[in-house]
Amino acid sequence: MSLTHTAEKRIGAARADAPGLIRWLSEFTLIWKILSIALFAGAWELAGRSGFNFSFPTFSDTVAALWEMAVDGSLGAAYLRTLEPLVIGLAFSLIVGISAGIAMGLRHDVEWFSLPIFIVMQAAPMAALIPLVTFVYGIGLTAKVLAVVMLAMPVITINSYKAVRNVPPSLVSMCHSFMGSRQQQILHIIIPAASPMMFAGLRLGVAEGFSGVVLAELLITPTGIGDLITFHRSIANFAHMYATIVSIVLFAIVTVGSLQWLETALFRPEKRSSQ
């Protein structure tokens, strides 16, 4: 029977109930996307050719520059440099942010003590702290990692906190009614119920982290992608500068987009609640 084996694997199940129609529709929107991108590229090309600004390269020049940098390896090397503080910073933000968020969600005293700090950090322009960090830690890796952490951690923490707070109380009381201990309630109910929203927070944190690392490289020390941008700007190599910017934007979008895809693939059965 088809009913019984569709949900063998959770990821499999998420896709199994999407029949051909959905796929057809998504291909349809893909056409729109391609059309939209083509129009954008065309407009860019025309604007570049019109020569309204000496520094504005055409789309084709930019693509050529991107290709050139990809082939000569300068882009790859720059990405390796940029990814180092990004990955370290995100890993740190993730571990600290999620634990802090869960602790605040579970305990009122921790919430009272820590939540205001994170609320301030999320609403305030943390980027203003980046020059200060350089001031103290110099222009090394530490400063860049800190820049990532400062921008990424607040949103990860706040989302984890909200995720724990939004766990349906009836699920927790269900676990309690079957004599689950507090530890079992946290392990079997609260964490799984909170994970979709925590993951969404992680996605937002990654987006912020990209912002942080680029900002750090532009402000603190010209390395990696920031260096490519600054360098090509200083020698008036505008097509290369644009290409670098396009590549980092694309890279960030693709990363965040795949996280989003992963999110729906992992948690899709849970997005619809049990109500």
Partner: peptide
């Protein structure tokens, strides 16, 4: 047509675009 761009700019590191604006 526009959805893709809105979503792109929502999660893009916009600070990378500032050098372009500066020029």
């Amino acid at each position: 047509m526009l959805n893709i761009w809105v979503n792109t700019f929502l999660s893009a590191p916009l600070s990378a675009l500032v050098p372009v604006f500066m020029i």
